[in-house]
Computed example of a mutant assay.
Amino acid sequence: MAVFRLFWAEEGGLPADDRGLAYGDGLFETIRMVGQKGVLLSRHLDRMARDAKRLGINVSRRELATVCTRAGQRFSEQFTDDGWILKLTLTRGGGGRGYRPDPGMVPNLLVSASPLPPTPDASGVVVDFSRVPLTVNPLLAGIKSLNRLEQVMAAAELGQSIFEVIMSDSDGNLVEGTRTNLLLRKHNGWVTPPAASLAVAGVLRQWLLERLRQRGEAVAEKPITVEDVLGPECQGLFLLNSVLGIVPVRTIAGHDLPVDGGLATIFNPLETLE
């Protein structure tokens, strides 16, 4: 069974030779916790184990689940009943110089806890279009890797009145926010960008698509254009994030959008605790 070196953030950070620090050689998960249970926890663990394998980082889902249990016991009493955030940062490990990893490297896992962010306005939020283009390497599509410089640059556009900015690909299609996936409601059903076009394929996104299809609603995974959002067929635009939940957009780039609170009845974080 694979092993890793475990680091608790409050006891110190990763070693100076860590490849995650040097090259972004790793990935992370951010999990909303309530007490010792996590929202959509199994999906977070599945994604980290699956995407670690895609990167060639040897770690087992069972080991990750054990760490989450230990983290819940360690941190839960430090926070209110509203919950807290558990972050797992997994890197290929430390040692060596240069891009080529040494054979047989032991991964590093950094575990940290923080308070929940403020709850978004249920009546809808204000967003804008980002000036930073998003380029997704097909080999890395969907992986929540440590390579997030495009999102960092786009997030610099956020202000006190702007909740999120929406990033576009080279063709001008709307792909995702700096920390959110997109779901558009049209007259004939729901539309979300295909997973292959995403920098991060969110666990809430996949969970919600499954639920909508189970309810018999039409869901299409295809590109979303600016015209789709600003045109007359738009019945609502939603931002998806497993920590923040399902967030309706009230205004985008100065244009008012219809706000529909129906999705709030589908996703209740407390009903997805594991």
Rank of each mutant, 00 (worst) to 15 (best):
V259R: 05
T69Q: 11
P194F: 09
L239V: 07
L212Q: 06
V226A: 12
E217T: 04
P15M: 08
A220Q: 13
G216L: 09
V247M: 04
G142L: 11
F163R: 01
L174D: 01
P101V: 11
I224E: 05
Y23C: 10
E150A: 15
D260L: 08
R148T: 08
V34P: 04
L149H: 03
T192Q: 12
R74V: 02
V59Y: 03
S112W: 01
F79Q: 01
F163H: 14
V175N: 08
E217D: 06
Q151E: 14
M167V: 04
P248G: 06
A154D: 05
V243E: 00
D51P: 02
D171I: 00
G38L: 10
R215D: 14
S114E: 14
A9G: 00
M105R: 01
H255I: 10
P194W: 09
L273G: 11
E271R: 10
E233Y: 02
I31N: 06
S145Q: 08
P258G: 02
I143G: 06
D256C: 00
G216P: 12
A71Y: 04
E29F: 10
E63R: 04
R61T: 00
E233G: 03
T69D: 08
L208V: 13
A154H: 06
L263E: 14
K87E: 02
L146C: 07
R100Q: 11
I266A: 08
E221W: 01
G104I: 09
A2N: 00
T135N: 04
K144Q: 07
L134H: 07
N173C: 15
V200W: 03
D121L: 12
T265P: 01
P193D: 09
Q235C: 09
R19E: 13
S114Q: 10
R179L: 10
Q78N: 12
I266W: 13
F28E: 04
L21R: 09
G83V: 09
L27Q: 06
G96M: 07
N108C: 05
P258R: 01
S130H: 01
G26H: 06
K37L: 15
L270F: 12
D260V: 07
G35A: 12
R100G: 00
P194C: 11
L86N: 02
L90I: 12
A9H: 14
R250Q: 12
D46F: 10
G159R: 12
T272F: 13
V126H: 14
C68Q: 03
L6K: 02
R5W: 00
G26W: 08
D18I: 10
S197Y: 05
P103G: 09
